Amino acid sequence: MPLLADSELNDYLPEAANMTADDRKKYLNRANSYALGVIGGIPLYTDKHPAETVKTAVALAYEIFAEGQEAQTNPVNGNITEAAPVGFYARKANSPFEVVDKMLQPYAEIFKGNEAESGQSDKGIMWL
């Protein structure tokens, strides 16, 4: 179950409408997987933590993944090529995914909190 479906992508990122179906699928899978990894699983939505925030974060991750493919590096020495945008490494150094991580952090905390209350073992202790 994706956090953001392909049918919803244009609502959150209209620029994606111009991409090929293969690129949309590739970046959307990466963005959904990234968000699931940060959260730790399928998030639990509440009135205070709605699904729209997660969908927006996934769309932002999608945009970051798609933008990252624009930069080109020399596969031999790793140096930036002349065709690559000048500011790519400066932007990459600041880790644009920090924003996505912050958006998803409350959902990760809720997910981890519910996992701890589910009776699973935590550091050798079984919670009953």
Rank of each mutant, 00 (worst) to 15 (best):
M1F: 12
P2H: 12
P2G: 06
L3I: 08
A5Y: 10
A5S: 10
S7Q: 15
E8I: 00
L9M: 05
N10D: 15
L13E: 07
P14G: 05
N18T: 13
M19I: 12
A21D: 13
A21H: 14
D22G: 14
L28Y: 04
N29R: 05
Y34T: 00
Y34S: 08
A35N: 05
A35C: 15
A35G: 08
L36P: 10
G40V: 01
G41R: 09
P43H: 04
L44A: 08
Y45L: 09
T46N: 00
D47Q: 14
H49P: 00
P50I: 02
P50A: 00
P50C: 07
V54Y: 07
K55D: 05
K55S: 01
K55M: 04
T56G: 00
T56W: 00
V58T: 03
A61R: 01
Q69W: 01
E70I: 12
A71C: 07
Q72V: 13
N74Q: 00
N74F: 07
P75G: 10
V76S: 10
V76C: 09
N77M: 09
N77F: 06
G78M: 05
I80P: 01
E82G: 15
A84K: 02
A84F: 06
V86T: 04
F88V: 05
Y89M: 12
R91L: 14
R91Q: 05
K92Q: 12
A93Y: 10
A93E: 13
S95N: 15
V99I: 14
V99G: 05
V100H: 08
V100E: 01
D101R: 15
K102W: 06
Q105L: 13
P106A: 03
Y107M: 03
A108C: 02
A108L: 02
A108D: 08
E109H: 07
I110Y: 08
F111Q: 09
G113T: 02
N114P: 04
A116R: 09
Q120C: 15
S121C: 11
D122N: 10
I125S: 10
M126V: 05
W127C: 05
